[in-house]
Computed example of a mutant assay.
Amino acid sequence: MREAEAGIGAPAPAGDSAFDGPVPILYDRCLVPLLFAPYAADLARRAAAFDPREILEVAAGTGIVTAALAEGLPGADIVATDLSAAMLECAAARAGRSNVRFKTADAQALPFADGRFDLVVCQFGLMFFPDRRRALREALRVLRPGGRCLLNTWNRIEDNPVTDRVAAAVANLFAGDPPDFFDRLPFGYHDIAVIEADVRASGFGTVSIETITCETLVIAEEAALGLCQGTPLRAELARRGADAVAAATHAAREALAPFDGRSVPMSAHVVTAR
C-alpha cells in the first residue's frame, strides 16, 4: 500500500495548484471525460435536491460541474470561480449560460459578502488548497443560515486503478527520484476522519460523508496524456529532464494498455455539510 501519510490532513503546497500553460487544454480534453464527468453528474443531482437559488462554485476548473448545475437548475443563479483564469476560459466555453457568471477568485479569500449563497459546491478542489480549513471557513462565511456546502474528494489511490497504475509506472521510471504528485495530491486527502474533523473545525454543524464508486471508460493514450501532461505532475516531470514528460507519458500508456477500451471503477468521498 502506498500512502502519503505525512500529507493527509496537511496543507497543500501552493505550487500544486498551478494549472497553466498547456495543462488546462489537456485537462479538459483528456481528464474531464475520464475522471470528472461522472462525479459532476452526481454532485449536480445532489445539488438539485436542495433547490438552491444562489450557488457558488469554487475551484470550478474547466466547468464540467458548472454545466451540470446550470442544466439541472436553470432557475438558479450560479457564480463559478477558480484561481486560474486559463481554466475559467475553458469553463466559460463549456458552460456559458445566462444564469452563470465566471470570476477569478481564491477559495481561501472569497470576494463575496457574508451570507450571500444557499449552496457552495466544490469538485475535487479541497485537497489543492494550501489551507483547507481556511477555505472551508470562507465557504461557511458566504453561506446563508441553513445553507449547505457540497464537495467531493478522491478516495485512496489504490481504489482508483487508472491513476494508481500511472503513478506506479512513473515512479518506477524515476526510481531514484520518483514524482509523488498523485500520492500526495490529489489522493493524499482521503481519510474520512480527517476530512470530517476539518469540516467540523471550520464551523459546520451537520456533516455527512458518503463513499461512492463510478465507472469510467479508459482510452489508454488519452488517459496517459491527461494524467502526465494535464496535471501539475507535468511540472514535476519537467524538472527531471528535457525528455522526462514524453518518457513518463509513454510509460503510463504502456501501463494502461490492459485497461484500454474497458470500464474501470473509481472511488471518491462526497461530503455534505450544513
Rank of each mutant, 00 (worst) to 15 (best):
M1P: 02
E3A: 08
A4E: 06
G7S: 15
A10F: 03
P13H: 02
S17C: 13
A18T: 05
V23I: 15
V23R: 08
P24K: 03
P24S: 06
I25D: 07
I25T: 07
R29A: 09
R29F: 05
V32A: 03
V32F: 04
L34V: 01
L35I: 02
P38Y: 00
P38W: 00
A41R: 06
A41F: 06
A44H: 07
R46A: 02
A48E: 02
R53D: 01
L56E: 06
A80G: 13
S84W: 14
M87A: 13
A92N: 13
A95F: 15
S98G: 14
N99Y: 15
V100F: 15
T104D: 14
A105Y: 08
Q108M: 15
L110F: 15
A113H: 13
D114K: 08
D118W: 11
V120L: 11
C122W: 10
C122D: 10
L126S: 06
F129G: 01
R134Q: 11
L136E: 10
R137H: 05
E138V: 05
L140M: 10
R148C: 07
C149A: 15
L150T: 08
T153E: 05
W154E: 02
R156A: 03
E158K: 00
A167C: 06
V170M: 01
L173P: 01
D177G: 00
D180Y: 00
F181S: 01
L185T: 12
P186E: 12
P186D: 10
F187H: 10
I192V: 09
I195A: 12
A201S: 15
A201K: 12
S202K: 05
S202I: 06
S202V: 06
F204M: 04
T206Q: 09
V207T: 09
S208F: 03
T213Y: 12
C214W: 09
L217N: 03
L225T: 14
G226E: 07
A235W: 09
A238W: 02
R240A: 01
A244I: 00
V245D: 00
A248R: 01
T249W: 11
A251P: 01
E254V: 02
A255K: 04
L256S: 04
R262P: 12
S263E: 13
V264Y: 10
S267C: 13
S267W: 13
A268L: 08
H269K: 03
H269W: 09
V270I: 09
R274M: 03
